[in-house]
Amino acid sequence: MTEEEPEPIRRRPGGRAARVRQAVLAAAMEMLVEEGITRLTVAGVAARAGVNETTVYRRWGSREKLVLDALLTGSNEGIPVPDTGAVRTDLAAFARTLAEYLATPTGRSVAQAATLGSDDPDLAEAWQAFWQSRLDQAGTIIGRAVERGELPPDTDTALALELLCSPLQSRALLGHRPIEPDLPERLTDLVLDGLRGRT
Rank of each mutant, 00 (worst) to 15 (best):
L71K: 00
V56S: 11
Y57T: 07
I79H: 00
D119R: 04
R19D: 04
E150F: 06
T38W: 02
D120F: 05
E64T: 01
D69I: 03
E53M: 01
E30T: 04
S62Y: 03
Q128M: 13
A111C: 02
G36K: 04
A129N: 08
F94V: 05
L123K: 00
S109V: 10
G44Y: 08
R16G: 03
E30N: 10
E77W: 00
A46V: 03
R88N: 12
E30W: 09
Q112A: 14
A158C: 00
S133P: 05
E147I: 09
T89D: 15
S118E: 09
N52F: 08
T155E: 12
E77D: 15
R148S: 12
D122E: 13
L123G: 01
G149K: 04
T106D: 13
D136T: 13
Q137E: 14
Y57G: 02
G61R: 03
A111Y: 09
L135F: 12
G74Y: 07
T155C: 07
G61D: 04
L102W: 04
A17I: 02
V42S: 04
P121Q: 04
S118D: 12
S118A: 10
L32P: 11
P82F: 11
G44F: 10
A47L: 14
E125V: 06
G14F: 14
T89A: 11
A113D: 07
A124M: 03
E34Q: 10
A86S: 12
L40D: 01
V45W: 14
R16H: 12
P82I: 12
P152C: 06
I142C: 13
A95L: 13
A27R: 03
V20L: 14
E150N: 09
I37V: 15
V81N: 10
P153T: 14
G36E: 07
A99M: 09
L32N: 01
M29C: 13
Q22G: 05
F94Y: 02
L66W: 09
V33Q: 11
A158T: 14
G50Q: 06
T73D: 15
E77P: 03
V146C: 11
V24D: 04
G107W: 06
L102Y: 10
V24F: 11
G50M: 00
A111F: 01
T41H: 12
L123Y: 10
Q132C: 01
N52P: 01
G36I: 02
E100Q: 06
A158E: 15
Y101G: 10
A49G: 00
Q112L: 10
T41S: 12
L25A: 08
T55V: 01
P80K: 01
A124E: 10
T84P: 04
G44V: 03
G61E: 08
T54K: 14
L66R: 00
R21F: 07
Q22A: 07
G85Y: 03
R39K: 13
E150G: 11
T157C: 03
Q132P: 12
Q22N: 06
Q112S: 04
P121E: 13
R59M: 00
